[in-house]
């Protein structure tokens, strides 16, 4: 009887005990990051202006070419008349014939030169058009992004429209060097770093209060879902 009572007491006490073991303890820690989109707005504007200028220049060259061809046609007609006169026995027209031949030759050389310029400008215009189509697709190839604090880089092989970048967990300043088409840009962000313990008993870093400190892009815009810009919820758009 005593042993039964004792056992019941023991079981009652064991019921009171509780465990708080973590679940999925082997999962890796999520790193605080931001999403960055790079828009080549400046190049798009410049290319549009260049294309327009190049189009005007092409029109002008074409007009000049047309004028020269008309002039050459007129000179050719005149040459025919002069040659008829010379064949009729008017040898005094021979100096005019020589001048007309030289003038037609000069026009032909100029027309050929202008034609070459038109061909070159047209190929440049087509190249501009191709680049503009690529920019308008919203996809930019970033060569690499470097953490200036430790010189570690992420290299990219494919164009993507949004890059996910780990923030600096060691300091409240994240300083990135972004290389696009052999051109380097700086992007510096300030933020608050806070240690916290997650549900899996991992100590991790939470980053919030993200703000643009300085940059060398044409413009940078920050978009937060919440008032206190938190990592993993913040999107930054850089125009260059």
């Amino acid at each position: 009887m005593k042993s039964v009572l004792f056992a019941s007491l023991f079981l009652s006490l064991l019921i009171l005990s509780s465990c708080d073991e973590c679940n999925d303890c082997d999962l890796k820690i999520t790193e605080p990051r931001i999403s960055v989109t790079f828009i080549n707005a400046d190049s798009l504007f410049t290319l549009t202006q260049l294309s327009d200028s190049l189009g005007l220049m092409l029109d002008s060259l074409q007009n000049e070419s047309d004028t020269l061809e008309s002039h050459r046609d007129f000179l050719s007609d005149s040459l025919i008349n002069v040659e008829i006169g010379i064949d009729s026995g008017n040898v005094s027209l021979q100096p005019f014939k020589d001048q007309l031949v030289l003038a037609i030759k000069d026009d032909s050389v100029l027309i050929a030169s202008i034609s070459n310029e038109i061909t070159g400008a047209d190929s440049v215009l087509q190249m501009y058009s191709g680049i503009m189509d690529l920019i308008n697709s919203g996809s930019v190839l970033v060569d690499h992004i470097t953490n200036v604090h430790n010189d570690l880089s992420i290299n990219f092989d494919d164009s993507i429209s949004s890059y996910t970048i780990p923030l600096n967990i060691h300091d409240t300043l994240s300083w990135f060097e972004v290389s696009i088409a052999d051109q380097s840009y700086d992007l510096q962000l300030t933020h608050s770093n806070t240690e916290f313990v997650d549900g899996r008993r991992n100590v991790s870093i939470e980053i919030s209060g993200i703000e643009i400190f300085t940059h060398s892009f044409d413009s940078v815009a920050i978009d937060c879902n919440q008032e206190n810009c938190k990592a993993n919820e913040t999107v930054i758009t850089c125009s260059f």
Binding site: K28, E31, N150, L152, I165, N168, H170, V203, S204, I205
Partner: peptide
Amino acid sequence: LVSIDFQSDLNDVYTS
């Protein structure tokens, strides 16, 4: 001694 390895390409191991 806290040691956080985020497996990141941009961050060294964090210790505090």
